[in-house]
Write a protein that binds this DNA or RNA. Sequence first.
DNA 1: CACGATTTGATTGCGTGCAATGCTTCTTCC
DNA 2: GGAAGAAGCATTGCACGCAATCAAATCGTG
Lengths: 143, 143
Amino acid sequence: MAVTDEMLCFALYAATRATTQTYRSLLEPWGLTYPQYLVLVTLWVEGPQTVSGLGERMQLDSGTLSPLLKRMEEDGLVQRARSTADARIVEVAPTERGIALRGELAHVPAAIAGAMGVVGDRDDERLLARLHDLTASMHAARA
Amino acid sequence: MAVTDEMLCFALYAATRATTQTYRSLLEPWGLTYPQYLVLVTLWVEGPQTVSGLGERMQLDSGTLSPLLKRMEEDGLVQRARSTADARIVEVAPTERGIALRGELAHVPAAIAGAMGVVGDRDDERLLARLHDLTASMHAARA
DNA sequence: CACGATTTGATTGCGTGCAATGCTTCTTCC
DNA sequence: GGAAGAAGCATTGCACGCAATCAAATCGTG
């Protein structure tokens, strides 16, 4: 049983890196990384967010997000601004260029789904649910 | 459908990071990282390996493995030696300390399985198979 | 109002991942 | 045997991911 457990961890690890590599080649023409793309998707769907809001959605902390958002700002994709109401808070909003990428990158989800061999059937739903359980279980175990 | 595909990628990404975090807390007393632990597991089970052999098994290249193995050597866990038969090849073998860790870390697989909520039933086998398919599909799509 | 605790981001340091490049060493082909 | 090509690692540069720490701003309480 031990080896199987090892293999499940490693299978996750390998699958994630393979996915990231596919994203890399898809996003390379736009100079985007996968986490940067995730930021844009979040901003497209949910609108401007605080840094901590992005952190919750992506499950990342400021140590990762701050430099990432700084690079995206330098690339003209997002804008950061201290809240006038609470100067501790930084609001992150997509620029026009950032918004325009939504159209230019509209092909990406289908391309990824194709590369993954995902069709959206019940098996895929079960996989998704299992991954969510697994993630929640891991986080619970840490506490 | 697009959002679901996004979610599957992200679910993988989040699950992997959650897993790595669990490993981090488990391995922290030994100063090991998850990839370093994987190297040790490979050496325990399959014996001494070349760098490229480790690279195949872990799906990592020398750009990642060289500095990682260098740190492990500095920590006294592995030894590297140029092959006498072919001086291009570097053989990686666990030191006595590296071998001793097999016993000290024997609790790790069960701890991870527990944190994951894995019991080894058919669902888990299916998840494992699906992840392997997904990884293979991704690699095939890159070619 | 003042002061300590809390919240929110930013910074620093380190270890991956990975593309690109370089350096030996080996193999092949003539 | 000698040169061209390939193979195997190492190095460099950059972008995460995350723990630890810091700084600024706000809140709560007396």
